[in-house]
Every structure is written in structure tokens, then in C-alpha cells.
Design a protein around this nucleic acid. Sequence first.
DNA 1: CATGAATGAGGCTTCATTCAT
DNA 2: AATGAATGAAGCCTCATTCAT
Lengths: 210, 210, 210, 210
Amino acid sequence: MRGTELAVAKKTLTPRGERTRAALIDAARRVFERDGFQDSRLTDITAAADCSTGTFYTYFQSKEEILDAVFEKAHEDMLHPGFPHVQATDDPVAVLAAANRAYFEAYRRNAKLRLVLEQVSGISPEFRDKRRARSRDFSERNARQIERLQQDGRADSGIDAGRAARALSGMVSRMAYNAFALGDDPDMDGLVDTATRLWANAIKLTARST
Amino acid sequence: MRGTELAVAKKTLTPRGERTRAALIDAARRVFERDGFQDSRLTDITAAADCSTGTFYTYFQSKEEILDAVFEKAHEDMLHPGFPHVQATDDPVAVLAAANRAYFEAYRRNAKLRLVLEQVSGISPEFRDKRRARSRDFSERNARQIERLQQDGRADSGIDAGRAARALSGMVSRMAYNAFALGDDPDMDGLVDTATRLWANAIKLTARST
Amino acid sequence: MRGTELAVAKKTLTPRGERTRAALIDAARRVFERDGFQDSRLTDITAAADCSTGTFYTYFQSKEEILDAVFEKAHEDMLHPGFPHVQATDDPVAVLAAANRAYFEAYRRNAKLRLVLEQVSGISPEFRDKRRARSRDFSERNARQIERLQQDGRADSGIDAGRAARALSGMVSRMAYNAFALGDDPDMDGLVDTATRLWANAIKLTARST
Amino acid sequence: MRGTELAVAKKTLTPRGERTRAALIDAARRVFERDGFQDSRLTDITAAADCSTGTFYTYFQSKEEILDAVFEKAHEDMLHPGFPHVQATDDPVAVLAAANRAYFEAYRRNAKLRLVLEQVSGISPEFRDKRRARSRDFSERNARQIERLQQDGRADSGIDAGRAARALSGMVSRMAYNAFALGDDPDMDGLVDTATRLWANAIKLTARST
DNA sequence: CATGAATGAGGCTTCATTCAT
DNA sequence: AATGAATGAAGCCTCATTCAT
């Protein structure tokens, strides 16, 4: 019962502890964005969180573990970015455009961190797996949306919704990566238009089912 | 000041020197694929190349420089994979499918190295820039192809060929990355089909201009 | 300045405090036996005693101090192991055998702790001195016994009772150490027989004075 | 074939390397004797050997490994102390006395190190095992000697030579430990006399077989 | 050209002890 | 009496790079 749970428990933290833990995660994110994962030093994180090096180990076992906490928090922001809720319209292209815009904007907020994500994916299988799981969250949401459109007769039923969703999500994600993480021509409107148009074409989206 | 000298000055090597240099690059590739860039040790490379640590510095200035040589060699394979030359046909979908298949197959051969590429892209702006330049090589080739199709009236002239090419190349590249680098369902035929169909749809490719 | 205060000032503890203190000593013994002194952590002790780290310092000034308390308790067991009282006999060999058996059995109960004792003897002169004092307790008891036998004419009066007692006590102690602490062939009857016979021979013990 | 051999190989060291390695072992012995094992710092060893910290790891994997090398060297001195070869005499008591004196003197030269040996025996089972193996080297030599005396009719055939040798070797070893390692009355002649007389008595040694 | 021993800065991590609650 | 978060000094160890042979 001891030792096997590793870092799972989280135990019950006092409010003070909760605050310190949060401060460390915030500080770590800033440091990782600035220096990358490998080149970051624990002492920079603790200094930014205004605590001693020892305190770090009260909450995390290693640099890897706090990185995971940082990613987890960012993933939530990416997945639920406080939606603009434009969905009052019936136009699926407008819905798609809004979703794409929301995604690109969330990505822009987290762009530096994505570079770190790619960096560590090359390092550890563990992060590789988590990364896959997270991108699946997006693909599956998109797959369900495509299925719905197919059932409504608005999208080509000849395509495999799951595969198409993974491919197109990948396309959008890569566009965002190139634009915001690698810094290649980050023109928001152009990105949204291109992504939306190609996506719509790819699944043969039609405005009406009639 | 660095970087400009990278590809310069192979000098004139004796045949023996040429062999040692080649052995080092081969060894480095194997070690980087196995351990990643940061976690690899120079001594592992020289041991695998069966020479001493000192010898390494006869041919390369640093670990970064040999990595660059490794990438250079792999990039050539990616860009000119000894084409299957299926282009005897006039069917643009078949051409596209063949190109995609060739790309996926080349990617599969170099998948482990892509992980390393992503890893170092997160670290050094120099590698980030080279990476961008290399992916542009692909996009531009694809952009010219799309333009040609548009001129022939076989593709939607409403889309921006450059942007579309970048987006769709990114899609295919990301599909390959997920499948072969991250190890997500590497089903070759499924990949080729999905990539080809979505790409064709996205640019509204038609078989005939008539 | 330290050391003199070690055994002082148990103060007057409430029954609850007494219980906590006892729990800590018990826990410490178990942890020291398992991990040794240096490799043990205070948090393991407090966790095993089911109290907080802070509480430890209510009862002990340092890790050394609780170790001392653990040894103190064990030493009492070694010196007064609840004698089997075989002394009804007049046969000095039987008496010797019984004493040896009692010693070996007490040693077996405390074997793990002896390893700790040796460990810390190499570290601190304080513990070295205490260790010497404790082994002197044994030697002196044995010295008096040998003197008595010499006076009764049952033992060789040519030997120095003090030196012989120290040497033979050392022999028995080392036998016990090898057998139970180092785990070398712990055959109780064989140990008792060998120790008793050699001891008896060494002082030329005779059954009768006549 | 790689990795499994750990620190065995020793490879082929250049003369320069051999010198550095020897200097490190010498330095380590001095530092361990002064500070004990746990309290010694690697930097003290390398400083004493006049090399950098990195150099240490060219020859040893860890502090444990160099300690082992130190012990190995000392054990050879203990076992083969450049014998005084008094064995020209036929008097077994004189032989025994000479052997004991040689042992005590060798022990005195290595006394500080014995404290370290006891210290680490309490820490790691590996050292515990090596320690047992080394003390067996002594016991077995003594066992053979006792057997020879028994065959010559000069020693009590009723005793088990192996057990007696272990017990008496332990006695002498513990006497030396108390005297030289713990610093308890280090009177050389007294030690030799007591050890020799008790040992001779214990096995009922007689000068003549007749 | 080749060798491989030597370098050394500096990051990571531990854990006894303190102290505010 | 009890709590448990915070402290921070101190040491181990790595590995790219140099240079004398």
C-alpha cells in the first residue's frame, strides 16, 4: 500500500500547501516556456515561486512530474477555452470557423508550451503516450461532430469519420504549431479561413441537407 | 557566426578519413535514434564507430554539428526517396496517392529521427529554422502542383495554393508523425487512402477538366 | 557538554506523552533495524509511530538521542534477560553453559541492532565509549566469576582473570555476532557447546576442587 | 556482453592511468581512516589524490567501489604481512605466539580501517558478505593448523577444529579490535600472552605428543 | 590521424531541524 | 501536545571538450 501509489494520492493539502503547489506550477510554466524543459533549472522554478529548493520536493518528485502538472492545466485550457458560444447559428461552416478560431486562439496562448511538448515527446515514451491521449481528446470530439453531419446528410458519408477527424485535427494542429510555435506567418484570419475552407471541402460539407 | 560554417569545409579527406567520418555519422544516427539527442553521449557514438573520443573532434566541432550532418543525410532520403515513377498515368488522384505513399514510406524509414528533430526544435532556434526550411521544401513542391492543377481547371481556383499546400502538407506530415513517430496505428494503406481522399476533396480535385 | 544530558530529564510526562515516547522508541528500533542508522529517515520513524515530525522533537533532541534510548533499552535485555535460573546445580560447566545460552539467545533477539551499534561505533566517539562501557559490564561480571573459581581452586590461578574475561567475553560476543548479526551458521546448540568447552578449557576449569 | 561486467574488466590501463588509480586508492584510505566512510567526501579524496572529481569516475563507479579496492589491498597485508618466519622451532606455543604477534601487529597497522569495515558491514549486505569471506580466510588457515596438531596428538581431538578455529580466531580478532580500533589498553605483549595462553589451553595444546 | 586520461562547472536531490499555527 | 510545511546547506555525479603523447 505504500510506495506503489507514487505521486497519485495528492493527499490532503492544507490551504497553505495548495497555494504553494499552485505557485510552483505557475512558476514552472514560465520557466519551461522561457528555457525549455532540459535547459531549465529547478532553482529557477523555486526562485520564481519564491520558495526553497526543498519545498519543491514536498509537492513533486521530479522535474518530469511538475511538467506533467503544467501540461494537464494547459490541456484543460485548450479543451475548454471558455467558449464564445456562437453556436446559435445553423450554418455549420460558421460553427466550424468559430471552433477553429477558438482553437487557434487557445493555441496561441499556449504556443511556447507546445514547443516544450514536442521537445519532451522526443525524450520519454511516457510523455509520448500522454500526448497521444490528449490529442485524441480533440480528434474524438471532432469525429462525433463529423458523424452528426453525416447523419444529417451534410457531409460525405463515404469517409471514415474517425480517420478524417484525426487527419484534419492534425492538420489544424500542425498549422497552429507552424504559425505560433515555430513563428511562421501567424496571421489569425488567414489561418482560420484556410483551415475552415479545407476542412469543409475535405468532408464535402454542404450548408443544407435538402 | 555559427551555422554559416556548418556545411562548409569538408576539406579534402583521405579515403581513410572519409571512412571514419561516415562511420561516425552512421553511429551517431543509431545512437540518436536510440537515446535522443540530449540523452546521448559522445562516447557512445565513438564507441559505436569504433574510434576514440579525440578522433570525433577531427571531423566535427560539436555534438550539434554531427546531428546536423545526420539530418542532412536523412532529408535527402525524404525529399528524393528514389521515386516509384508512377507518373505515366494522367489520373491526378493516382499521382497524389503515389506521392503520399512515397512520403509515408520515407517517413517510416526516418521516424525515430523525426522525434529527435522535434526534440531539438524545442531547444535551438537554429534547428527550428532548418526544420522550417526543410518543411518548406515539401510545401513548395506541393504548392506548384496545386497551381498547375488550378491552371488546368482541375482544382478550385478559389483557394490560395501556397496556404493550402502548407496546410495539407502539414496534415500529411502530422499523420505520418502520429503513425510512425508516436506509434499510433501505423496502417499504411489506410493512411494513404485517407490522406489522398481528404487532400483531393480539400482542393476540389476533379479527374477531368472537361 | 552533550552526552551528560542524554539520560537526564525524562521530565514528568503525562500518560499520553509517555505512550507517544514509547511508540517512538519502538518505531525507531524497527526502522534502525531495517535501514541502519544513517540510512534511516526521521519521517519513517514518525510515520511508524503514527505522529508528526514536529512531535518527535517534543521527546528527543536529535536522531542520535533516540538511538541512544533504543540501545539503552536493548542493553537491559542483554544484561538481564530474565534468567532461566539454572543455578541450582553445583556444576560450574553447566552454569557456564546456561549463561552462554542465555547470552546467545538474548543476542539473537537483538542481532539486527548490533549491526547498528557497530555502524555508529565507526562514526562517533561517544557511541564508541558507550559501547566499551557496555561490553565492560559483561566482562566484569565474567571476571568476578573467574576469580571466584580461582579462589575455589577450580580454575588456573596462573591467568589474569580480568584479561581472560575480556578475551573470552569477546570470543563469545564475536561468535554471536558472526552467527546472528552476519548470519553465519546460526546453530544454537553448536554455539553453546563450542563456547562453553573452549571457555572451560581456556581457564582450565575443573568440576571439583578436591 | 556490455554492461553486465560492471566494474570487473579494469581494462588495460596506461601506466599513467595506473598511477592515477593507485593515487586515488591511497588517498581514499587516508580519508576513510580520518572521516569514516559515510562522512567522507569524494572531493576530499580527489583533492588528496591531486586530481579532479571527474577523474575519480574514470576509475570507480562510486564511493563503495573504491572502498572495496581499499579493503582488498589491506586484506592482503593482513593475510601476508611479510612473515617473520620464526617457524624454525618445534615448540607449537612459540609458533602460536609468533602468529598472534604478527596478526596483532598487522591489525594495528590497519586498525582505523577496521572501524570503517564494521561501519559499512552495518550498512550493506554486500560488504557483510565480503567481510565474512575475508574472516573465513583466517579461520580456515587456523583450522588446518589445529587439525595438524590433533593428528600429531598435541591437541584435544574431542573438539571440532573448524568451529574452534572460528571461535578462537574471533577471540583474537575481537581482542585486536578492542585494543587497537576502539583504543582499549593497547599493550602488545599482554595481548600476545593472553591470546596465546587462552588459545593453547582451549585446544589443550601440549608441547610433546609423547 | 589517432588516442584516452583529465578536466570542472553546476544541476539535482536529500533530510534533519525549525516554527508558525 | 501536536502538526506538517518550509528550510537550505551540502555532496554526488555527468559529460562535452581539451591536449599531451
